[in-house]
């Protein structure tokens, strides 16, 4: 690991100013990133620093802010999650398990017990891709790590790569699970930046790779996520997260679906929410599929045609075409199962 300057931030305002100061002293991005990074759980950042994929000149340790920014508040209007809450704290919260099952399940099915005890949910949504060509610096071509260098995955071994949201410059998959739950439930992100606090729809947080895959979010230098707010809605209890992977546990998704349904007494769908993981470059909302379900009875046939719509724009590469069929089956099964939940 390369040397870095280590600072502890006592308040969130200090943290954002420290990042700004860190950038001012060294403006040249390294490996496509700004030279100062926040350190919370560190489970992704330290791993990538050991691999020399990330080379921050400065780390601002914000674990000292945990007490101020880790509250989990459930009200009739919304679920508010402090961004420094640990994944395990959210996953094991009884009211979240009961009233926002897709949130709890997306976290329980992610990583390992130790990692969930360490990782903050704010850092979790920002975790970086598992693309081998990104993680292994002996490959020179990676536009995400080394902008302008090309993409070794396009014609490389791309079984794990994205079929949705890819560009000619990057097909790396967004690896997380929790983000899909936030997408499906219309979460809002509270961001503290050098110029104050603002809120951003979660669906606007991540950026599709386009021609700048190194820029992964709409966050600006010095911005720190302080909370997620999930509005209470008629579909939140009839929700679940389905994750399909090569191993039963402790593995990233090949395909996953966060679904939430509002079904009326007659069995017709009033509202549907579907977000896809493991198959796209960013947390992916399948709005066409959602719209197709409204007013229909949810059965295996309607679920399957919605699932087909969800992958309408899919563009497979040599080794990942199976993700289209697998993803469609994942969405179908998730929807059918959600429809049978007793809420």
């Amino acid at each position: 690991m390369r040397p870095f300057v280590y600072e502890r931030a006592a308040t969130s305002e200090v943290a954002t100013q420290a990042i700004r100061a860190g950038i001012a002293t060294d403006t040249a991005p390294r490996q496509g990133r700004y030279p100062a990074e926040f350190l919370a759980g560190g489970t992704n950042l330290l791993d990538l620093m050991k691999l020399d994929v990330m080379q921050p000149a400065k780390l601002i340790d914000i674990t000292g802010l945990t007490q101020a920014h880790s509250a989990i508040l459930v009200s009739p209007q919304a679920l508010r999650l402090g961004a420094l809450a640990k994944m395990s704290a959210v996953a094991d919260h009884p009211e979240i398990i009961k009233n926002f099952p897709v949130v709890a399940q997306s976290l329980t099915l992610a990583a390992s017990a130790q990692l969930r005890n360490m990782a903050s949910i704010g850092g979790n949504v920002l975790q970086r891709t598992r693309c081998s060509y990104f993680r292994d610096t002996s490959w020179s071509a990676c536009n995400k790590r080394n902008p302008g260098s090309g993409c070794a995955a396009l014609d490389g071994y791309n079984r794990g790569h994205a079929v949705l949201g890819a560009s000619k410059d990057c097909i790396a998959t967004y690896p997380g699970d929790f983000a899909q739950a936030l997408m499906a439930l219309d979460a809002v992100v509270t961001v503290l930046g050098p110029d104050g606090t603002r809120t951003v729809p979660f669906s606007d947080l991540h950026r599709a790779p386009g021609s700048t895959p190194n820029v992964e979010t709409t966050l600006r230098p010095g911005d720190v996520i302080t909370a997620f707010v999930i509005p209470a809605a008629t579909w939140m209890r009839r929700s679940l997260y389905m994750k399909i992977r090569d191993r039963q546990s402790y593995q990233f998704a090949l395909a996953s679906a966060a679904v939430a349904l509002d079904i009326d007494d007659g069995g017709l769908v009033r509202q549907a929410r579907i977000a896809l993981g493991g198959v796209a470059t960013v947390p992916w909302r399948a709005r066409d599929a959602e719209a197709a379900l409204v007013g229909k009875k949810l059965d295996p046939q309607t679920a399957e045609s919605a699932a087909r719509l969800a992958f309408g724009g899919a563009a497979p590469r040599e080794h990942n075409a199976f993700k289209i069929a697998l993803g469609q089956k994942t969405v179908t099964r998730a929807l059918v199962q959600a429809a049978t939940l007793e809420v």
């Binding site: 280590y6 560190g42 489970t43 791993d47 340790d61 395990s88 130790q114 005890n117 360490m118």
Partner: peptide, 10 residues
């Protein structure tokens, strides 16, 4: 009191 990976903790 929480099980933690010491290799990914500074």
């Amino acid at each position: 009191g929480q099980r933690t990976l010491s290799c990914l903790t500074l």
